[in-house]
Computed example of a mutant assay.
Amino acid sequence: MLTVEQLHAIEVLQKECEQADTIQLKLNWDMLRQRDDLSMDFFHEENGQLIAYLALYGFGSTVEVCGMVKPSDRRNQHFSNLWQQALRVIEEKGFEKILLNASASSTSAKAWLVTQPCMYTFSEFQMCWAKQPLEESEDILIRQALPADSSFEIQLDVLSFNMSEEDARLHHGDIKNRTEESRFIIVAEGTDVGKIRVSRIDGEAYIYGFAILPEFQGKGYGGKALRNVVKQQHEAGYSVGLDVEVKNNHALRLYESIGFKTVQAQDYYLWN
C-alpha cells in the first residue's frame, strides 16, 4: 500500500498543478488508496518534496498512464525520466495496450505528448450531478452484487465495453475486493438486467461500469436505475460524478437529462 505520507504528497502536488493550470487531473484515487502493487507508482522528490509523479493503472491487458510535474520544475525532463522507468515496468508486466491520459485543456501535457510516438484516440467527459428533484422508480431494484453474480458482471463488461473475456475477468478480479467501492445489480421484471458500481471517497460518490444488457435497452430501465442510484447517494450526503466517452451520445444525453453537467474533458492517446 502507498503510505499516508505518499498519498498526501500526491494530493498536494495534484492541487498545485490543477490550480496553476486550471484543469482537473484524473488520478483514480479509488485505485491509489488500495494499491497492492507499488511498482505501478513512480516518484521524483527533491529535498523531501514531491516534484513529479507518474501512475500506471491496469485494466486487463490495457494500462492507462497519468502524471504531473510541479509547475515551477517543468522542462527539466522529470516526467520523461519517470516515463522511461514506467515503460520498463509496462514491458515486464506484458501489457499489450498503453493509453496516455491528459486533461484536454492542459498545455503542458499536450506539449509533452507531441514529442512522443502516440496518436489521439478518444475523449472522455468528467461530469458532476447538479442537485435537482429526482423521482425514485419503484419498479427497479438495485441490489448488492453477490459472488454468484461474477459471471453476469463479466458478461456485461464484454458486451458493453468492448472488452475481451480475458480482460473482463482480469478487471473483475481487480475490482471485486475494493473496500471503498460497492457493486450493484440492476433488476427489472424480476430479471437481472444490468450493473453499476459506486466508489465513495472524500464526500464524493463516483459511478463506474454502468451497463444494461442489450435486449433490455430502450425500455427506460437504465435511466430509472441511474436516477435511483443518484438519489440514494445524494440523500446519503455525497456529491455524484461519472465519466462518459464523448462519442457515446446516447449515454451523454441520458446523463444530461438527469442533471449531470460536464466539468472537464480528458483526452486519451494510444502509445505506438
Rank of each mutant, 00 (worst) to 15 (best):
V244K: 10
G67M: 07
K110A: 04
S151Q: 05
G218Q: 03
L146Y: 15
F43P: 03
N76Y: 01
L134Q: 07
S39K: 12
K15T: 11
T191K: 11
K97E: 11
E64S: 03
N248W: 11
N162R: 13
M163N: 11
W271E: 01
L2K: 08
K176R: 10
G220F: 00
F43Q: 00
W83H: 00
E46F: 01
V69I: 02
R35T: 15
G48Y: 02
C66S: 11
Y120L: 01
Q34P: 15
Q77S: 09
W129P: 04
N76D: 05
A205K: 05
D157C: 08
P117D: 05
F161S: 07
K224E: 00
Q49C: 07
A130F: 05
Q266G: 08
F42P: 00
E136M: 07
K93A: 10
L82K: 09
N28I: 02
G190W: 07
L252G: 06
K93Y: 13
L146F: 14
S199H: 04
F260W: 14
L242H: 04
D139N: 12
G60W: 11
D21G: 10
V229R: 01
Q233F: 02
E181Q: 14
P147Q: 00
F79P: 00
T3S: 15
S108D: 06
C128N: 12
I186V: 11
L50Y: 01
T3C: 10
F260N: 03
I140P: 00
G94P: 03
P133H: 13
K231I: 12
L226K: 04
L38F: 04
Q85N: 12
M68G: 03
Q126T: 11
L82W: 13
K224D: 08
E138G: 05
Y238H: 15
G220C: 02
K15Q: 08
T191Q: 11
A109W: 08
D243L: 08
C17P: 09
S239R: 03
E5P: 06
A111N: 13
Y238C: 10
G190K: 12
T62F: 05
M127W: 15
W29N: 12
F260M: 06
T3V: 14
E96L: 13
Q232P: 01
G209D: 15
S61D: 08
E16V: 14
Q232T: 01
A145P: 06
S39M: 12
G241M: 13
